[in-house]
Design a protein around this nucleic acid. Sequence first.
RNA 1: GGGCUCAUAGCUCAGUUGGUUAGAGCGCUUCCUUGACAUGGAAGAGGUCUCAGGUUCAAGUCCUGAUGGGCUCACCA
Length: 894
Amino acid sequence: MQEISSRYNPKETQDKWYKFWEENGYFSASSNPSKKPFSIVIPPPNVTGILHMGHALNNTIQDILIRYHRMRGEESLWMPGTDHAGIATQNVVEKSLAKEGLKRQDLGREKFIERVWEWKEEYGSTIIQQLKKIGASCDWERIRFTMDEEYSLAVKTAFVKLWDKGLIYKDKRIINWCPRCQTALSDEEAPHRQMQGNLYYMRYPLKSNPRNFVVVATTRPETMLGDTAVAVNPKDKRYKKLIGERLILPLTGRQIEIISDGMVEAKFGTGAVKVTPAHDPNDYILGKKHNLEFINVMHPDGRMNDRAGDYAGMDRFEARQVILEDLKEKGLLEKVEPHDLSAGHCYRCHTVIEPYLSRQWFVKMAPLAKPAISAVKSGKIEFYPKRWTKVYLNWMENIQDWCISRQIWWGHRIPLWYCNDCKKLAIAALSKPSVCGICKSSNLKQEEDVLDTWFSSWLWPFATFGWPFSSEDAVKNSQNKEDLKYFYPSSTLVTAPEIIFFWVARMIMAGFEFMGDLPFRDVYIHGTVRDTEGKKMSKSLGNSIDPVEIINEYGADALRFSLISITAQGQDVFLSRERFEQGRNFANKIWNASRFILMNLDPANARGDLCVFFKKEQLQLVDRWILSRFFSTLKQIDNYLDNYRFNEAANSLYSFFWREFCDWYLELIKPDIKNRQHQLVMYKILEKFLRILHPFMPFVTEEIWHLVCQLSKAPAEKSSIMTTKLPHLQKQIIDPDSEEKMERVFELISTIRNIRSELEIPPTQQVSATVYTAKKESQDLFQLNSLHIKYLGRLERLEFAKSYRQSPGKFATVFKDMHIVIPLEGLIDVRRHKEKITKKMQKTSLEIKVKKKMLANKSFIQRAPEEVVRREEEKLKELTLNLGKLKGVKDGLS
RNA sequence: GGGCUCAUAGCUCAGUUGGUUAGAGCGCUUCCUUGACAUGGAAGAGGUCUCAGGUUCAAGUCCUGAUGGGCUCACCA
């Protein structure tokens, strides 16, 4: 037999097996009516993406589900792809251009887009390669990109359909504007963040009496240049008389009016608020309501414009400082107070958002939200953990119209055409119309803006299948249609909480709108990966652990297993490097246990059907026990995975294999390892365990699978563990009686080991022991298993007797209803031993007291289930017996 | 301000519907290199389950409140 290393070396196996799987087409899936479908669409990572722990967790979960269902015999499709990530990608490419001293405008739109494509070709597959490293079994032949030609058609189609329904409109309003990226953003793309700022109290002189003024408080003094009113609450007595009066706006000399509106909070600041309708969403509302002028004082890049007078050309924050100085100089700055505020930040470049008045395209969301709300309310779509349902519904029920136009170049250009001649109409069409519908002019121009990236991602669950099937290839179309019909709706969506609004909610809306059906049934939201201090792992914080590094150092299986074993119920995951040792050690343990089995297994014994072989009483207790434990575990795994309880599944696999199979079973059978029964059982357990573990640790299981098959010469299984089925759950083998009995044997062994340890008996020294028990059943059990007890307890003799009689000089202890006596004349520290016994007696007495009290309670007897009462009674009996025995032992010592 | 979430061993966390002795990994102590594995084995120490009430025969688990973290949404300038 070939030498097998005593250490599992993941580096030697990972790439080899991944290639093997891919080349054999084990990942591919297509509609197959004879099987049940199972499908997942990957949350497409950005093309600019580099694998981080969040991806590793997200994709490990998906891979476990996919591999598990695949091995359950379901036609399992994991649809992969990447997202063109408009702003993010454009930013990356602009940065690389900047190194050449170029701006995108220097290249022009077309050339720039070409550059982005080039960039994508060169770097865009980095994350895909990394996904392969963690073992992701996606159907790579289907890989999609949200800017693919086919996919673009889906985007345009969706737009035109919404347009035709009247759900798309243009409006001039305050939107979130990123002055750095110079584009509009949706509300979701401009998350609010707490900031330390100031509240500046500024004096606005009254026109009627410039020595008097109204003081307004603001966090953004620079916007004062665009003020067109000051508003107060109509009920505010301080200002009642001043309503309708005019103020002189400092630094500009412009006159503005004092208006009143219920929106103004009298309690905040001074109760008088400056109104800047072009630079604040609330002020915008006031402006509309009171017919105020809208003065935009900023350029799109955040510099002040000509309307800002002397401050024109300054950056908004620079202008703030200068304005404050000027006001101060004029005695118009009353005071400055520290004030915490929250402001929107660009989710791509983190620049402070400017609420900015501009004309943008919007989607009316209320009609789309309707079916998406009821699908979740009715339970057709379920969130795991449940609590996200509320988050989702809350957002959905208060949904705002979606700003979908972006002033960037990289993305799906909005499929709208304007007539340069009559300028009357915008036409939405999949391709350029030949003439204007009104004036018949052919002088048409396409909208410059592109669509929000998420306007393409929300179509992902069906657009990836080729929807709307307008390809010229009829065969391809019909295959696509069939696949979509078969795999849609997908089974489970696995994603992170921060993406619920961006993507999950919108996919649900798009699913109903364009497919007339939900896009997926279950949504599993996993936690955020954090460092041990609770900070979110991110490159910018420098606290991230690179998954690829972990794969190199510990192995992909270790990465997967360690991640999954701490992913409880969608709780956040706190990670430190050491955490991956657990996974590495586990892989190594499996490796060595397999090695041990291979070294000791006679291949002839590996053949045979367990079911046929297993006739109830034929097998020894140990074998019945381990088989029962295996199938109990298997049953649990099914249950755990069906409920997305990944950590519990991982942990029960771990403890079954390590604690029960290795520490107990293999140790127990060592002296009798050539026994035919043991041989078959240990082989079968290993072989079955590998299969159930495979979804979690695909590489090490595949590697061992081949070693095992080689030895057992089972040719049918020679191909790949991936193509096998999960072990069939044989419920009749689950045997609580064996489990309970074996448990008692273990307890006895542990007690003996404990005694040895207490007495500091060297492991090499054999001793003899006598177990006194009045119960015949117990005696039989231990007698039957005395070989095991002797072996693991390192006993040369094990004897049984009925009634215990103290004999000085022997060590005695009480275990359950028994005495265990080890003769060790002269070696016992009587005093210490006595102390131990006393301590034990105290504990027992206390327990007895509690139980007695409990059983004396009439309500307990009346109301608790009979079974519980009986159990307590028995327990009390045992404890009392125990106490008596302990006392006997103690007395015998003196 | 609303909502969600967490508080359990030295650390990081499990603990499904309330019911024997509250678990794991890491860390710690003692012992062991015995032919699967020291990335290992055996034994052990360590917890008033944040606090205060309540429901119940019975609460780590359910309810209310408090305290302290975290997340998220929101138009107090």
